[in-house]
Simulated scan of single mutants.
Amino acid sequence: MASGSAALDQIVAKLKGSSDPKRRYEYVLWLAKKLPPAPAELQCESNRVKGCVSQVFVAPTAGVNGLQWQGDADAQITKGLLALLIAGLNGLSASEVQAIDPCFIAETGLQGSLTPSRANGFLNILRHMQAQAADLISNN
């Protein structure tokens, strides 16, 4: 199933390629370690993802090469899920981000490794990023 993002589809394929839930979990933690530190000013109310047990902040910058995302989270697994979304959505236009089908989340096979609240938080992060993209469209 295509998500609407080639980068996101590659990440999903990598996760689906492992039958071991522990390896998928380790991949998400590896993504967390690779996420560059976000600037402190990113941590404001408008960038905070609501509905997450962890503190999660994410924000886009619009450029000639599409949206570039920055973010941070105070829990490693949540930070890894955020990093997965950032890697998958970087470079897309705001309308492309809005069009991402959240069904890709089930395709990752991560539900078996995540608590229900983390899985819900993953969806909330995506929804927040899509809402930010919508705001960019309406403000232009």
Rank of each mutant, 00 (worst) to 15 (best):
1 M>C: 08
1 M>Y: 07
2 A>M: 09
3 S>N: 05
8 L>G: 03
8 L>R: 02
8 L>E: 00
8 L>F: 00
9 D>E: 02
9 D>C: 07
10 Q>S: 12
10 Q>F: 03
11 I>W: 05
11 I>M: 08
12 V>S: 01
12 V>F: 01
13 A>C: 02
13 A>G: 11
14 K>N: 03
16 K>A: 15
16 K>R: 14
16 K>H: 10
17 G>W: 06
20 D>W: 06
20 D>I: 12
21 P>C: 11
22 K>H: 13
22 K>R: 14
23 R>N: 09
24 R>T: 07
25 Y>T: 08
26 E>N: 14
26 E>V: 08
27 Y>V: 07
29 L>K: 09
30 W>C: 03
31 L>I: 04
31 L>H: 01
32 A>G: 11
32 A>K: 03
33 K>E: 15
35 L>I: 10
36 P>V: 11
37 P>C: 06
38 A>P: 09
40 A>Y: 03
40 A>D: 14
42 L>P: 06
42 L>S: 02
43 Q>W: 03
44 C>S: 12
44 C>L: 10
46 S>M: 08
46 S>A: 13
47 N>P: 05
49 V>G: 04
50 K>D: 11
50 K>A: 15
51 G>L: 14
53 V>M: 15
53 V>S: 14
54 S>F: 11
54 S>A: 14
55 Q>V: 03
55 Q>R: 13
57 F>Y: 15
57 F>M: 07
58 V>C: 11
58 V>L: 07
59 A>M: 00
59 A>Q: 12
62 A>K: 15
63 G>W: 01
63 G>Q: 05
65 N>F: 12
66 G>P: 02
66 G>V: 08
66 G>T: 05
67 L>D: 02
67 L>M: 12
68 Q>M: 13
70 Q>I: 05
71 G>A: 04
72 D>R: 04
72 D>C: 13
72 D>H: 07
72 D>T: 15
73 A>K: 10
73 A>W: 09
74 D>V: 14
76 Q>P: 11
77 I>G: 00
79 K>M: 08
79 K>W: 07
80 G>N: 11
80 G>L: 11
80 G>Q: 05
81 L>I: 10
81 L>D: 06
81 L>N: 04
83 A>Q: 02
85 L>Y: 04
85 L>S: 02
87 A>K: 08
87 A>I: 00
89 L>G: 00
89 L>S: 01
89 L>N: 00
90 N>S: 11
90 N>M: 10
92 L>T: 09
92 L>M: 14
